[in-house]
Design a protein around this nucleic acid. Sequence first.
DNA 1: TATATAAAGGACAAATTCATCCTATTTAAC
DNA 2: GTTAAATAGGATGAATTTGTCCTTTATATA
Lengths: 120, 120
Amino acid sequence: MSNVRDIAEAIGSPVAFTAKVLQQLARKGLISSMKGAKGGFYIEAKTLRHLNLCTIVNAIDGNGITENCMLGLRECSEKNPCPVHHQYKHIKAGIIKMLNESMVNNLTIDVEKKLSVLKN
Amino acid sequence: MSNVRDIAEAIGSPVAFTAKVLQQLARKGLISSMKGAKGGFYIEAKTLRHLNLCTIVNAIDGNGITENCMLGLRECSEKNPCPVHHQYKHIKAGIIKMLNESMVNNLTIDVEKKLSVLKN
DNA sequence: TATATAAAGGACAAATTCATCCTATTTAAC
DNA sequence: GTTAAATAGGATGAATTTGTCCTTTATATA
C-alpha cells in the first residue's frame, strides 16, 4: 500500500497529476484504493499476476495505438490502405506484442534490482 | 508544380494549415517553392530520388521518435534504462528502418495506381 | 507597367493535453 | 466521537498543438 505522494516521488511526476492517473486506473479496476488514514493504492495479487502494459495503456489512452492509422486517416484498412499501411502494420503488431508480453510483475523485478529506473 | 489549395484538397487537410507544413518543408529544402502566378510547390527530381519518410518526419517533428524514451524519461539509455528500454529499442529500430526505407517516389506509385489513398 | 496569382510569415484563435487546487468523503487511531 | 490522513472528483488554469487570418513579397502575363 503506497500513497500518492510516495508514488509521485518515485516516478518523478507531479502529485496532483499522478493522483488523477491513479484514479483512472482504480476506476478501471487495474489497481485498488483505500481512503482514509493508512489508505493508499495497491494491486491485488491476482490482478498483478495478469497485468501487462497493454491493459494499462488501453485504460489510460484508449486503443488508439492499435487502431489509429499512422497518417491519421479515419478509414485505413487492408482494403483501403494509406500509403504506409502495409509497412506500419508490422510495427503496430510489434508494439502490441511488446505491450502484451510486458508483465508488470516482471518489470518490477529489474526496478527492485536497480537494473532499470522509473525517474531521473 | 502544385499550389497549396490543390495539395490541401488532395490530402483532405485545411488550406492554411497545409501551407504552414509546406513552408516548413521548403525551409528545410525538402521541397521547393515558387511565388507568384503559376507558382506553387514541387520537388526537385534529384531530391525526390533520395527523399524518404524519415527525413520528412525529422524536418517536421524533430528526432523525437528516434530519441525519446517510451516512458518519457529524459535520460534513458543502455546504461540507465527505463523498465521497457530493452523491449522498446527493437520497436524503435523497426520504426526508423521503416521510415528510412519508405521512399517517397515509391509511395507515390501506389497512390497513382489508386492502390493506396491520401485522404478519406 | 498594371494586374492577378501564389507563397512567406507574423499574429492570433481554438482545441486538446497536461496539470493544479479545493472541497467532500472515507477510514484509522486515539 | 474527534481528529488527522488519505482518496474522489469537480472546477479551473497552463501549455502545447492545431488551425486561421491578414499583410507582404515575388512572379507571370497581358
